[in-house]
Write a protein that binds this DNA or RNA. Structure first.
Lengths: 196, 196
DNA sequence: CAATCTACTTGCCATATGACAAGAAGTGGG
DNA sequence: CCCACTTCTTGTCATATGGCAAGTAGATTG
C-alpha cells in the first residue's frame, strides 16, 4: 500500500535516510488527481494543501489591475506546488493555480506538514531547502526582469526550461516573461532568423 | 549584560514567550557595527552571518551583464538582513550588501542558527515566518514589475516605504524600480505637477 | 462538412523608457 | 574659499514593447 507512495518516498530520500521516517512522512500524504483546466487553488480561497506533483503540468496566475492574466509560475512533474503566502500564512490567495495537463500528485495539510516539520529534523531541512531554493530562483528571475531584454529572458527560458515552452501556450509564456503574446511572437521570429 | 541584547529579545518575543528560551536565543547573537560604505556581504564571498539590524540603513545590489549596479533590496532598522541563497545554501553570493548609514546589528552564524532552529520549536516558526514573508513580498514586487508602469511602482513605494525614499539616493531607488535615474527624475516631475 | 474557436502571426502606429550629454545645485576636502 | 565630486534635472533622439486589428492555420463541435 505504501508502495504507491514511492514517489513521495523518493522525493524525500535526498535528505531522509531512515525508512521508518520515510514511512511516517509518506503516511501523511494523500493522492490527488486533477483534470485539465480544473484548479488546484483559486484566487480568494485560502490554500489548504501542499502538493508534490508526480505527473502533469500547471501554471499559477493572477490578475493585474486591468484584469489581464499574469502567469507567475509553471509547475512541471517532480516539483512541489503551493502558494507560499496563502499556505503558510493562512491568507486568501492572490493567485490561482490551474491545471494545463491532467495532474497526479500527493498532498499534505498544513497541520500534518507541521507535525512532520516538528518531529523529523531532516524533514524540516528538506522543507527549508525547498523554500530557500524557490526564493533564490525568484530573485534571479526578478533581476533578469529588471535588467535584461525580453528577448534575452526568452532565450534563457529556452535554455533552462525548454519543457515549459513545449507544454504551455504562447500567451502564458509571454505574460510569464512580462510581455504580450504579440511581442513574444515577434521575438520568436527574430530568433529563428538568426538560426538560419 | 544580556540587557544590551534587548533588541534581540524583543525581536523574538512575538513568537517566543519563555524567558529562558529568549536567553538562549540572545546568547547566540553577537553585536556587529559597520561603518558607512563598508560591506555586510561582498559578491563572490559566502555569507557567514544572519543579521538583525537594530539601527542604520543598507542596500543589496548586484551587477548586470553590462556591469551596471542593480539595487535589489533596502534594509531599514528592525529588519533581518541576509542573502537567502548564499547564507542557507553556502554558495558564493551573487550580490553585495552595502551600508548606507552606519549600522548596529546582531549577528548569528549558520551553525548557531541551526542549533536554535533544531532545539526551539518557536524559534523555527519565527524563522520560517521571516522566509515566508520575504518570499511573499518578493512575489508581489515581481508582479508589479511585470504589470505596472514605473510610475505606478514609484507611487506604491512612496506609499508603502517612504522611509526608503528619504534615505537612499535616487539612482539606487531607480535601479530598484527597474528604471534609470533619468526616468525616475522625470517621473518625479510628473507626479509633483499633479499635486499642484 | 460547415461553422466556430483558439492559437499564433503580422502590420501599423503610439508610447514608455533608455542612452547620451549638458547644466544646475549641493557637498566635502584641502 | 575654491575645486573636484556627486546628485539630480533636462533636452534630444533612439528603441523596445504595447494596443489594435486583420489574417492564417489548426482544432473542435454539432
Amino acid at each position: 500500500m505504501d508502495n504507491e507512495k514511492a514517489f513521495v518516498r523518493r522525493f524525500f530520500q535526498v535528505g531522509v535516510t531512515q525508512p521508518e521516517k520515510l514511512d511516517m512522512i509518506a503516511s501523511h500524504f494523500h493522492e490527488k488527481l486533477i483534470d485539465k483546466y480544473d484548479y488546484f487553488l483559486l484566487e480568494g480561497k485560502t490554500s489548504q494543501e501542499y502538493m508534490l506533483l508526480e505527473s502533469g503540468f500547471m501554471r499559477a496566475y493572477s490578475l493585474d489591475t486591468a484584469g489581464n492574466e499574469v502567469t507567475t509560475a509553471f509547475y512541471d512533474a517532480g516539483q512541489p506546488v503551493f502558494d507560499v503566502a496563502s499556505f503558510f500564512m493562512h491568507t486568501p490567495s492572490k493567485e490561482s493555480i490551474q491545471v494545463l495537463s491532467p495532474c497526479k500528485g500527493w498532498v499534505i495539510s498544513f497541520n500534518d506538514l507541521n507535525i512532520l516539520f516538528h518531529s523529523i529534523p531532516e524533514f524540516r531541512e528538506v522543507g527549508r531547502g525547498i523554500l530557500v531554493k524557490g526564493f533564490a530562483a525568484l530573485k534571479l528571475r526578478m533581476q533578469s526582469m529588471i535588467k535584461e531584454t525580453a528577448e534575452a529572458r526568452y532565450a534563457m527560458l529556452l535554455q533552462s526550461n525548454p519543457e515549459i515552452l513545449l507544454q504551455a501556450p504562447l500567451k502564458h509564456i509571454a505574460s510569464y516573461l512580462g510581455i504580450t503574446d504579440t511581442s513574444l511572437s515577434r521575438i520568436r521570429r527574430e530568433l529563428s532568423k538568426q538560426h538560419k
